[in-house]
Computed example of a mutant assay.
Amino acid sequence: MALKLFIMALRNLWRQPRRTILTGLTFAVAVFIFTVLIAVPASMDLIAEDASRGIRLIVTERNNNSLPVKYCAAIRKIPHVLGCSPQIQWTGIYRDLRDPITTTGITNDIYTVTGSSDYSPPPAIAKQLANDRRGALIGSVLMREHHWKIGQPITLRNPSDGKMTLTFIPMAELPTIYLSRIFFFNRQLLDDAVKNAYGENIQNVAGFMSVRVDRAENLGLVANQIDENFHNSEAETQSVTESDTLANYVSAIGDVRTIIYSLCIVVLLTMLLIAANSMAMMVRDRVGEVAVMRAIGFTQVHAASLMLCEAAMIGVSGAAIGAALALWYFGAGMTLGALTGALGYVAVRPETAIEAILIAFIVSLAAAIVPVINAARIAPALAFRKVV
């Protein structure tokens, strides 16, 4: 019986093809928007989760100035510290002035702060990066955004300083979520460029330091020890966990999560109202049919099930189209723009798309249940009278 009702519902959908298509497209657009929106905080959570696995501290200068590279030697002597990597950042423009690219200069010390859960380039690539000052390791999303290729020279420039134009050679693509928009390069290239342009030696200067700790429970202890060691020094430090650094970065651009969830609620309510209006019109046109079904022996449950099945099929089919488009377009990741910097991007995952389809299924049933139940309860004789 259930199969027969399903077949009948499928045939009935095309009795009003225009209404069916328009309602389905409404679900498709709404689910596409909802899926992309909800993927933003989900992507941020995945990035933070990946960062927390590294068991690292980010050490910066308390007043946002630079740090002496020699601090790393002292930090390595602190108990529970496994490695320290001084790093420096430089921002350049590839083509669009509205899309600055933040690059990070590294040394071989970077491999002392990577763990088993982190991506590490093959030894041959790591050796090549150390020997070639133009070498770079670039995240997969950033590579795809700019259509860069491995081995293809990339020139970045400082728009306000013509002397600072650097050319890099991508040697490997970083596939992990956390590093999807990162740009690591051999900092010797920047050191030499600054020295040649201005005669300044910045080899002993770091923008920040990444420190790896043996266990997560020792992060706070090591952070306090680092800050105490350099208290009242030439450059006082501020040490926080890597995941907290990301959280502070996101909070600096506003309460993104609350805004996005509010927009999701608006999308759901809009979808519910449109679906409810469409379902009400569908049920109104089917009053006579329901009366005939009841007169020839169909129960209220059968009639209601048929119309609810039609509503669910419209919602799920439209939602599947919208979720599939979101997964196809954003599945591999896409930047959120310069506002969120090198770490901000959105990636729609299969589980997020499936959740959006389930929500659309629930919304379609919720929109149809009241008019369907009211129609199924009408006595056959009274339903015929309404038609006549």
Rank of each mutant, 00 (worst) to 15 (best):
M293K: 04
I354P: 02
M271P: 06
N158L: 06
R53P: 01
E173K: 14
S66E: 10
E49K: 12
I58K: 14
I101Q: 03
M293N: 04
I110Q: 10
G254F: 12
T155M: 04
I101H: 02
G83H: 06
S364Q: 01
Q300V: 00
S305E: 04
G162W: 04
T176N: 07
F185P: 01
Y261K: 10
L246P: 04
A356I: 01
T114Q: 15
G288I: 08
A376D: 08
N108T: 15
T167R: 10
V266A: 14
L306S: 09
V141G: 03
M313S: 13
N248P: 00
V240P: 07
S243P: 07
T176K: 03
R157E: 02
A353H: 03
A360G: 11
D214T: 09
D99V: 15
P350S: 10
F32I: 06
R11G: 12
S140H: 14
P79M: 05
R11P: 02
G333S: 03
F6T: 12
S85Q: 09
T112H: 08
A172V: 07
I378K: 09
V301E: 06
N131H: 15
V59I: 12
A383V: 01
L190D: 01
E49D: 14
F34Q: 05
V287G: 02
I58F: 10
E234N: 08
L306G: 08
S278F: 03
I110S: 02
R95V: 08
E145P: 01
V240F: 13
I58N: 13
A367Y: 06
A338L: 00
